[in-house]
């Protein structure tokens, strides 16, 4: 299954309607697909806005996803630390994980390679999407637990997922 299909199917299965995003080269085709499938996409000017947009959408009865890169997720840390976590605002994150295998830009390493530890310190549950397992199921279960427990759950995704999965 193409990983774009997996995302669409998982979001549909868990009634995720709103996708707040800031794209990169890996995510742009996914966003295009999500727009074709009539998801409500919101391009933000800085990723921390997405934390607010998704909270507001949830207050309005809708479920949302954050789609961005690890560098952008680092931009959200005060927002997650003083809004998402203490208030228990659910969303699922699908985040391109920079800083690891094949990384060519040192600027992506501290917040990219270190992101699991950074999220752990903040108290945001996270997991690496495993290309050897069913991708749709992992996204669906991340959303399931996020909305059931009213908590954020971030899936970190290898930029080469499309070639691995």
């Amino acid at each position: 299954m193409d990983w774009h299909d997996a995302v669409v199917d998982a979001f549909n299965e868990r009634d995720v309607e709103v996708v707040a995003y800031l794209p990169d080269s890996v995510l742009a085709p996914l966003i295009e697909r999500l727009e074709e499938e009539s998801f409500d996409t919101v391009l933000v000017s800085r990723e921390e806005e997405a934390i607010g947009v998704l909270a507001g959408a949830w207050f309005g009865g809708r479920r949302g996803a954050l789609v961005c890169q690890t560098s952008g997720l680092a931009n959200t840390f005060n927002a997650m630390g003083s809004f998402t976590v203490p208030w228990g605002i659910p969303f699922v994150g699908l985040v391109t994980h920079r800083g690891g295998l094949g990384e060519h830009n040192r600027a992506q390493i501290p917040a990219g390679y270190g992101m699991p530890d950074l999220l752990g310190a903040l108290g945001v549950r996270n997991r690496q999407l495993d290309s050897a397992l069913d991708v749709k199921s992992q996204i669906s279960r991340a959303a399931e637990t996020a909305f059931a427990t009213e908590d954020a759950f971030v899936l970190l995704m290898d930029p080469k997922l499309g070639e691995l999965a």
Binding site: V18, A20, D40, V42, V44, E48, E49, A50, I51, G52, V53, L54, A55, G56, A57, W58, F59, G60, G61, R62, G64, N78, A79, G81, S82, F83, P86
Partner: peptide, 22 residues
């Protein structure tokens, strides 16, 4: 009423998310 008690800079973004959902 929803009272922000943190997340400075996010108040209008939160209202936007609600406004597109109601």
């Amino acid at each position: 009423n929803f009272y922000m008690n943190g997340a400075m800079g996010l108040t209008t973004a939160t209202a936007l998310g609600l406004a597109i959902s109601t």
